[in-house]
Design a protein around this nucleic acid. Sequence first.
DNA 1: TCAAAAGTGTTGGCATTACACCCATGA
DNA 2: TCATGGGTGTAATGCCAACACTTTTGA
Lengths: 246, 246
Amino acid sequence: MSSVAKIENVRTAQPAIKAVPDEPERVGGFRYARPKVAVDIIVFAVSNHRLSCYLIQLKRGPLSSRWAFPGGLVRVGESLDAAARRELASPTGLSDAYIEQLCTFGDPSRDPRSHVVSVAYMALISAPGLVKAPDKYADGKWFEVSNLPPLAYDHALMANYALKRLKAKLAYTNIAYSLLPETFTFAEFEDLYATILGRQPDRRNFRRSIMAMGLLKELPMKRTGRHRPATLFSFATRSPQIIEML
Amino acid sequence: MSSVAKIENVRTAQPAIKAVPDEPERVGGFRYARPKVAVDIIVFAVSNHRLSCYLIQLKRGPLSSRWAFPGGLVRVGESLDAAARRELASPTGLSDAYIEQLCTFGDPSRDPRSHVVSVAYMALISAPGLVKAPDKYADGKWFEVSNLPPLAYDHALMANYALKRLKAKLAYTNIAYSLLPETFTFAEFEDLYATILGRQPDRRNFRRSIMAMGLLKELPMKRTGRHRPATLFSFATRSPQIIEML
DNA sequence: TCAAAAGTGTTGGCATTACACCCATGA
DNA sequence: TCATGGGTGTAATGCCAACACTTTTGA
């Protein structure tokens, strides 16, 4: 169960531009909605023992100054995955992060202005540093997941769902690789799990089971610090895999 | 991890009706797509030891006479879940089946006529009998999942995804209740698992573990047949629950 | 030499597996 | 009485959880 909707043939033919009113279409006697289609992206990162996600502050509209996940409308000829990657790259500059479709929210009243169907994505990145809010937002910053401000639209639902999914997938996939730098100590790896799952596993058992499944590759270098140097590790493979982890 | 996007406040205010061309909208210098939004629904049922799903035959358009999952455009003021339930009720007459959003497909070229974003749903019903294809389709019938015809659009992707999800959820939820009638014998229950998962569990161990977790309620009646009468069971609770089943 | 983090083995209990025979009925 | 599917118990195994001390370094 990994990212789906992988077809990415972006259409190149470009139809003429024309403004479209937000009106329904009548076909066969029924009035079909013409909702706008957006993607919203929940970007997770871990830093100093805290799971954080990136929020932007809305600039315009009836919800201006409220916090929300970054997102935007799908463009002409663009797939959903491509739109999500674009919305991720816009504040972070990252183009190859782990990204996964979560689910789609389409209540007609979820946006007070018009009917907007939004496809929620989750992205996992390792460095929460580099992020800068694009001009279309009033502001953007990282919030600890355990301490989010009130969110616009139905984004609180998205946040709950994303967190549940992240926790679940941590237990049966190797996606943790996308939250860690290229090399890391075992303690950092373990701390990632403790942080996201909210509990400290038994250190000996955890190390034993992780090492037994060959997830990590021991590197010949050590990280020296104030204390006993720690062996460095990297992931044996940095592509998403289903592995019974816990 | 159950059905999401549960907000169901259907808007009552109804804007004026007007035909909408399939053209992009220009906002802030970018050309935003105005895709149509559809739901497609993968209806599963089990009968005589086979997992089947319901397909319809397209009547119009460039893919006419191809097989596909039933589905249709979202109507004005309608949520995605409501649209999915409507598309399920249309051939089956069922309104309370288990239904769950799967994922959303939005490649701009997935429909040769225009950009259609489709939200895939899965539904589980117990009686594959009652189904009758609505007039908008040329035909409709049940196919064994292991023997599907070529499917229109990207519906083969949907089928794969749905099947994977069904198998996974069978192992950690009680959604099997929606594939069985109100009462059933233990052999029928066991056969459901064997059929969908494609392997025969050890009968004694399977019964022991299922009974130990209190999923089923033993009824005071028996089903008599040609042979030794079998105890009838029903589910202790017929609402979706997370339970480690296997 | 002390503080702080890194690293490591053994055991008991529990849960899962494997396995084969008797039972109740209708024909 | 026989064919057919319904229903059950026990022993062996493997896995997981619990548990505490030694090592290495920098200050």
